[in-house]
């Protein structure tokens, strides 16, 4: 092949790949809007202000407010649990662990990051869930169990991201603090963490995004009630869980089908929002 044909071919391939990425984002948005259109039209505002989600009753009810709140609540609680522990572990690995030790623990986390969520869910369902009955909790699958699952699911990504941002702080900054007589813990938590703050905030946002989109763990462990739980041991259902569990049994094109797409639209809005916040944090940090 001659040089300039090759050049043209390669440029074309690059253009095609960019076009695919761009049309994927637009395509996903357009599809979600298009398919949820009839739900908006026929159910209207009730979709978002009602807690009544009875899609297979006659007449059916499509109020997903409780599930939206559940998704957000799980995200908030999940992040609140996982972030502090991830932070402490990252501080240990960054400042105290010996290189080999750090490498090994990091490796464990990396392997965990690869474990499919259905496996985490199954293990907890088999080995932890039965314990609830023994202590007299009526629902063996509930918010608490889902949070435990989410903890295992997100602790690798959260810890790794925080560790990376701590590690990227220049050594001189820490030395300057140490030279003033600060003990290491103080240096790491006050000085290093401050310098790494954008990275840590980014880690939190991405962790939250991971939780809000997680499906199988909340579906298998959450217990599946489309109500707002009153306590940690109540069962609950999120938007993602509703989509994955109900869609396979739904007639394509029905109002139920369309409402589930509306749930998907809410989800993608959340995730886009999280990603935009993440981009903004990182960009401000660069300047």
């Amino acid at each position: 092949m001659n040089r300039s044909t090759k050049d043209t071919l390669r440029k074309t391939l690059l253009t095609v790949s960019s076009l695919i990425a761009i049309s994927a984002v637009f395509g996903i948005y357009i599809y979600l809007i298009k398919e949820s259109y009839s739900a908006f039209q026929q159910v209207g505002a009730e979709l978002f202000v009602s807690d009544q989600w009875y899609p297979v009753w006659d007449p059916p009810e499509f109020g997903m407010r409780a599930m939206i709140i559940n998704s957000l609540m799980v995200t908030l609680l999940g992040s609140l649990i996982v972030v502090p522990f991830s932070y402490l572990i990252a501080i240990y690995l960054h400042g105290y662990a010996k290189p080999r030790e750090k490498e090994m623990i990091r490796r464990i986390f990396e392997y965990l990051a690869g474990v499919p969520s259905v496996v985490i869910a199954f293990v907890l369902l088999t080995f932890v869930s039965p314990l609830f009955a023994q202590v007299g909790i009526y629902s063996p699958q509930n918010l608490l169990l889902a949070l435990v699952g989410l903890f295992f699911l997100t602790i690798p990504i959260c810890t790794t991201l925080i560790l990376e941002s701590l590690d990227s702080v220049p050594k001189q900054v820490e030395e300057a603090s140490a030279a003033l007589g600060a003990i290491e813990f103080r240096t790491y938590t006050r000085v290093t963490s401050k310098a790494a703050l954008p990275g840590i905030m980014n880690a939190i946002v991405l962790t939250a995004n991971r939780i809000v989109g997680e499906t199988i763990v909340v579906l298998l462990l959450g217990g599946g009630a489309a109500m707002i739980p009153q306590k940690l041991t109540d069962p609950m259902k999120t938007l993602t869980a509703a989509i994955a569990s109900e869609m396979p049994e739904t007639a394509k094109g029905s109002l139920h089908y369309s409402s589930l797409f509306a749930a998907g639209l809410v989800l993608i809005l959340f995730s886009t929002l999280f990603e935009v916040v993440s981009i903004a944090i990182l960009r401000r940090n660069k300047r």
Partner: peptide, 29 residues
């Protein structure tokens, strides 16, 4: 190699979309 801000933006958005939403899209399209 190409300094295209909007492509980076698009890929970041893609990387954050929940898998179940990809499922919905795949189902529909």
């Amino acid at each position: 190699e190409y300094n295209l801000e909007y492509i980076r933006f698009v890929v970041t958005i893609l990387s954050g979309i929940p898998s179940v939403v990809y499922g919905l899209f795949g189902l529909g399209l």
